[in-house]
Design a protein around this nucleic acid. Structure first.
Length: 155
DNA sequence: GCCAACGTTGGC
DNA sequence: GCCAACGTTGGC
């Protein structure tokens, strides 16, 4: 099983949106970066766990935990010209972009801010805090994962 | 809203 | 294949 961190702008789609999904799951669309695409398509498996990260907002940070609920399948929003993330180069017969379904496992009572992550020496190797990192999907090591969970739960 | 750091595009 | 121009990301 693998661990991940997935970014979303809360103005667009927040953990509260996910919590309000009737079905309990949602499709994680709009990934338009090859490296992130490859993680989704090639490495993500059903049952993997992922941190829900709020980006580009007042208090960026990790706000909860999701479970990957499906294998990767073509991101059909790329096929629809009316969609924000339409991409004419992604064809139905040869899709360029993929997505997975996610399910909310847990919303943290107190989220872990980027500031606090930066202050934590043991998390200094995280992809998230590497200079210039903009990847919206990144792998998290088990050690990092466990450490964050311990921080969130106050040991 | 600013802007630095990236990734992508397209002319050559 | 180079690289300038452009668009996007995301912290601040």
């Amino acid at each position: 099983m693998k661990y991940w961190l997935m970014k979303s702008e809360p103005d667009v789609y927040s953990i509260e949106h996910l919590a309000a999904e009737i079905k309990g799951t949602a499709y994680w669309d709009g990934i338009r970066n090859y490296q992130a695409r490859n993680f989704i398509r090639d490495d993500m498996k059903v049952g993997d766990l992922a941190f829900f990260y709020h980006s580009n907002c007042a208090e960026p940070g990790i706000v909860g935990v999701m479970e990957i609920a499906s294998a990767a399948y073509p991101d059909y929003t790329a096929f629809d010209p009316k969609e924000k993330y339409f991409d004419s180069k992604s064809e139905k017969t040869n899709p360029r972009w993929f997505m997975v379904d996610v399910k909310l496992r847990r919303k943290f009572r107190i989220s872990l801010s980027l500031k606090d992550i930066r202050l934590e020496k043991k998390l200094s190797k995280m992809k998230l805090v590497q200079p210039g990192n903009r990847l919206s999907i990144s792998p998290v090591t088990k050690i990092e994962w466990d450490h964050i969970m311990a921080m969130v739960d106050g040991d």
